[in-house]
Simulated assay, not measured.
Amino acid sequence: MRVILVRHGETNENVQGIIQGRLDTSLNEKGIMQAEQTADALRSVRVTHIISSPLSRARVTAEIIAKQQASAAFSTDERLQERGFGVLEGKVYSGPREKPADTVGIEPSAAVIARLGEFWEDLTRSPDPDRTVAIVSHGGALSSLMNYVLTNDRVKCAAGVEPSRFWNCSLSEINVPTEGPGTVISWADVRHLHAGESHVRNVDEAIS
């Protein structure tokens, strides 16, 4: 099975360094353009399933991709939502990476890892070589999935593949065999986006 992880396109909050978490923010003009470029990049791939976070910035990115994948089954899954940051949501955050464990309303890291682990187990329970799944989610969620769920003996990076941040509309590809660990073929690839495009640091991914 082929799995393609897609982070949503840019939002104004991304640019402003605002913590979004579960806020239902929208793509900005550049984010829509990034999603369209991503859809074009995937046009030659026969995507069979598109699964998205229900939050608008991810769902709209997924819907733009789906326009180029007429035969793909489309669904949303709440387990792909961004981590909830409680009282920090909607604010510019410039504090330390490690937030106080008692931050009001914050979703514990262990809970994030658990729901994403459950999602991955459901997805890969019976790998089908004819299945190509595009998963559209968020920077913090994808970082937790790759760094804490999958790299725990579930996947291995191919030669030359290095972990990085998950940039807006980046593509990461994983081959999942019927037995044994999967292989990360690419990690947060943005070569399909316009040349010279600057990367926006994702504050939701930068804090833990």
Results as ranks from 00 to 15, higher is better:
Ser94His: 14
Ser143Gly: 06
Ser170Ala: 08
Ala188Asp: 05
Phe119Ala: 01
Asn152Ile: 02
Gln34Ser: 08
Val112Trp: 02
Thr178Ile: 09
Gly86Met: 13
Ile185Glu: 03
Asp128Val: 07
Gly21Tyr: 04
Val149Met: 02
Asn152Asp: 15
Ile106Val: 14
Lys91Pro: 01
Glu13Gln: 13
Ala58Phe: 02
Glu78Trp: 05
Val15His: 09
Ser75Met: 13
Ala134Met: 03
Pro100Gly: 06
Asn14Ser: 10
Phe74Val: 10
Thr25Gly: 09
Ile113Glu: 12
Leu23Lys: 14
Met33Glu: 15
Ala195Phe: 06
Trp187Gly: 02
Lys67Cys: 08
Ala114Ile: 01
Asp189Ser: 04
Arg79Thr: 07
Glu107Ala: 03
Asn152Lys: 12
Ser53His: 05
Val6Phe: 01
Arg165Ile: 08
Leu142Asn: 01
Ala158Pro: 06
Glu63Lys: 12
Ile174Pro: 08
Val149Gln: 02
Glu118Gln: 15
Arg83Gln: 15
Phe74Asp: 10
Gly90Pro: 10
Val112Ile: 11
Asn14Ala: 10
Val133Cys: 03
Ser94Asn: 15
Val184Glu: 07
Ile185Val: 14
Ala110Lys: 13
His192Arg: 07
Ile174Cys: 04
Gly180Ser: 01
Ser53Val: 00
Met146Gln: 00
Glu162Phe: 09
Arg131Val: 07
Gly105Met: 01
Arg79Tyr: 05
Pro177Ser: 05
Asp122Gly: 11
Glu78Arg: 11
Ser172Pro: 03
Ile135His: 00
Ser143Ala: 09
Val60Leu: 14
Phe74Asn: 08
Thr151Tyr: 04
